[in-house]
């Protein structure tokens, strides 16, 4: 835990970390099934950070933050937040050859931005898999807005505005992912707003209860 903020006690932190671990394990296994490509998700990290420091935390992990490909998707349920899927600029071509396999679609002329569309579609599945498994375990439902996709863009501070206010804290989960034996590597950040702390605590309490 960074910043010495004690929103969660040690046991709750441990349980959250363990839940994320299980959720991402399930997500990786089922993703491999759904997209037919091997997926590795690294051990997830859990941090509670001030919203004003979020950018720095993301930049700590993502070295290519000034020019990256980004899929952003909001989700809402008892707890709400934003998911960011970030990977290096230039990998979008590999994404297309890896995921866009319907032969009849390959006659796109010069006219269509295939890369963006493929990133959106696959990003939506990657994000949906990880989020749904977490909320399954916490036994709460979640809905999504459609993804926004940018190619070769700088990850900017103002993306975070509007979802979070500066002095709030955010619960940040992140994991590294690798597709098809490291052909593409990137990061997934799930940033939950401060108001999701109470519902999370409640869900954890129910979980502890179920083992008594």
């Amino acid at each position: 835990m960074s910043d010495n903020v004690n929103f969660f006690n040690d046991e709750e932190t441990d349980a959250l970390q363990e839940l994320m671990n299980i959720a991402f394990g399930q997500a990786a296994a089922e993703l491999a099934e759904v997209i037919d490509i091997s997926v590795t998700l690294s051990f997830p990290k859990l941090n509670i950070v001030k919203v004003s420091d979020l950018m720095n935390h993301i930049a700590d992990d993502v070295k290519y933050i000034n020019k990256c490909n980004l899929v952003e998707q909001r989700y809402k349920g008892d707890t709400g937040g934003v998911a960011y899927l970030i990977f290096p600029h230039g990998t979008e071509k590999e994404f297309v050859s890896m995921f866009h396999m319907d032969e009849e679609d390959n006659d796109h002329e010069v006219f269509i931005d295939v890369e963006r569309e493929v990133l959106s579609e696959v990003g939506n599945i990657l994000i949906g898999a990880c989020i749904s498994k977490i909320f399954d375990l916490l036994k709460t439902n979640v809905t999504y807005t459609p993804p926004h996709t940018m190619i070769g863009h700088k990850f900017e501070n103002h993306f975070l505005k509007g979802c979070f206010t500066g002095e709030d804290y955010a619960i940040m989960l992140n994991t590294g992912f690798s597709l098809s034996e490291k052909t593409i590597e990137g990061y997934l950040f799930l940033v939950n707003c401060q108001s999701s702390i109470e519902p999370l605590k409640k869900a954890l309490a129910d979980l502890f209860e179920s083992y008594e």
Binding site: E30, D105, S120, N124, I127, G128
Partner: peptide, 21 residues
């Protein structure tokens, strides 16, 4: 792939006309 994703993850899948016609 879209159907598998919906049944496995319960998310919403969008299939764009730009990509799939």
């Amino acid at each position: 792939r879209g159907c598998k994703s919906v049944f496995s993850f319960g998310n919403l899948v969008f299939l764009s006309s730009k990509l799939h016609k």
